[in-house]
C-alpha cells in the first residue's frame, strides 16, 4: 500500500497499463503538458508524443479517431478535459463507439476509455460542472464508471483500459487531491461490483463519486443520534451491483439514493425503481432520492450552494427516513 492522491492513482494506472501494453495510448488536449489537471504529468516524457498525443481542440475528431484506432486493434484513452466538452463528441461516442460492435454484427470491438472529469469544482458554473453520468447509462454498449477513492481510481481505470467495451469514466474534479491508500503492483478493481464504505443496520445509502464522502460525513453525524447508516459506493453505474444494493436495503429496510447530478431522470431513479420492483412490502419507509434541482449549475457560491447536495442534505434525509 502507498498513500497517494486520486489524481496520482489515475496517472499511475495509465503509466502501468502503457508499460504493460504498447497498444495503449492517450489522446486529448494539452496532454503533453500533463493534462489540464496534471493527471498525465510526465507521461509524454516517458512514452513520447505518438502515445501521449496532443490534439487540436476537436472533440469530435478526438472521439472519432479513437473509434477508428480502437477498431484496428489499439486501446485509446480519450481525454475529454471536462465532461461538459464530451457533448461535442456525442455522435462519435453514442452512434459510433457504443453501437459499432452490435450494428456490424460483432465484427469489431471498440476498446476505448473516455475520461470525463466531472462535477462541481471551484465554482466553474454551467458549462464546467455537470454530472451527466445517467445519460451514458441509457446507451446500450457503454460501461459507465465513477470512482470515489484513490484505490478505485487506480484499479478501475486499469480495468477500464483492459476492457474490450467502450467505457465512460467519470473522475470527480473535486477529488483530484484526495489522498488514500492504494495497493501496489498490478491492482485491478472489478467493474460492476459496489463497495460497502460503512456498514450499518438502519438505512442503506447508495451513492457514488464525490458524494460518497458527503455520505460518510452524514453517517458519522447520524451515528451520534444512534442511526447506523450503511453506505454503498456503487463505483460502476453500468453494470451496477443490484445484488449488493437489494440485499442491503432488504436488511436495513430503508433506502436513500444520493447523487450530485440533477434529480430528475438521474441514475438514482433507476436504483429506486429497481428497489421498488424487487422489495415491495419489505421496506419500512418509501425509497428516497436526493439530487440537484433541475437547473443549470450557477456560479456565485451562494447560488451554487442551492444546487449542491451535501452532507447536511443527506443527514436530513436519513433522519427523516429513520423517523418513519
Amino acid at each position: 500500500m502507498t498513500v497517494m492522491t486520486y489524481q496520482e492513482a489515475a496517472r499511475q494506472a495509465v503509466r502501468h497499463e502503457m508499460r504493460r501494453d504498447p497498444l495503449v495510448w492517450a489522446l486529448g488536449e494539452d496532454l503533453g503538458r500533463g493534462g489540464v489537471f496534471g493527471q498525465y504529468r510526465g507521461l509524454q516524457e516517458e512514452f513520447g508524443p505518438a502515445r501521449i498525443v496532443d490534439t487540436p481542440i476537436s472533440e469530435a475528431a478526438i472521439m472519432g479517431a479513437a473509434v477508428g484506432a480502437a477498431l484496428v486493434g489499439t486501446r485509446p484513452i480519450v481525454e475529454m478535459r471536462f465532461a461538459d466538452f464530451a457533448l461535442c463528441a456525442m455522435d462519435e461516442l453514442i452512434n459510433q463507439a457504443a453501437k459499432n460492435r452490435y450494428m456490424f454484427g460483432g465484427q469489431g470491438r471498440v476498446p476505448l476509455v473516455v475520461r470525463q472529469p466531472t462535477g462541481l469544482w471551484r465554482n466553474s458554473a454551467a458549462q464546467h460542472s455537470q454530472s451527466l453520468e445517467a445519460w451514458y447509462v441509457h446507451v446500450p454498449g457503454l460501461v459507465v464508471i465513477a470512482p470515489a477513492t484513490p484505490a478505485d481510481n487506480r484499479g478501475l481505470l486499469a480495468a477500464a483500459i483492459r476492457s474490450d467495451d467502450p467505457v465512460v469514466y467519470f473522475e470527480h474534479k473535486n477529488l483530484w487531491q484526495l489522498e488514500g491508500e492504494v495497493p501496489d503492483g498490478d491492482h485491478l478493481t472489478p467493474i460492476g461490483r459496489a463497495e460497502i464504505r460503512r456498514p450499518g443496520r438502519d438505512i442503506t445509502i447508495v451513492t457514488w463519486s464525490a458524494l460518497v464522502h458527503e455520505a460518510l460525513t452524514a453517517a458519522g453525524q447520524a451515528a451520534i443520534d444512534g442511526i447506523e447508516a450503511e453506505i454503498i459506493d456503487l463505483r460502476s453505474l453500468w453494470p451496477w451491483d443490484r445484488e449488493m444494493v437489494l440485499a442491503s436495503a432488504a436488511r436495513t429496510g430503508r433506502l436513500l439514493v444520493a447523487h450530485e447530478a440533477v434529480l430528475a431522470s438521474g441514475f438514482g431513479a433507476e436504483v429506486a425503481a429497481v428497489a421498488a420492483e424487487e422489495l415491495f412490502g419489505r421496506l419500512k419507509a418509501p425509497v428516497r432520492r436526493l439530487g440537484a434541482p433541475r437547473m443549470p449549475v450557477p456560479y456565485a457560491a451562494v447560488l451554487e450552494a442551492e444546487y449542491r447536495v451535501d452532507a447536511s442534505d443527506i443527514l436530513a434525509a436519513v433522519r427523516s427516513l429513520c423517523a418513519e
Binding site: 497498444l23 498525443v53 479517431a65 484496428v72 452512434n95 459510433q96
Partner: peptide
C-alpha cells in the same frame, strides 16, 4: 455509416492506430 461525415474521423483514427501498430 448512417451519419453523414461520421466516417472521416474514424478513418483518420484508423490510420493513426495502424501507424502505432
Amino acid at each position: 455509416n448512417g451519419v453523414v461525415a461520421a466516417g472521416l474521423p474514424i478513418a483518420v483514427g484508423a490510420a493513426q492506430g495502424l501507424r502505432l501498430k
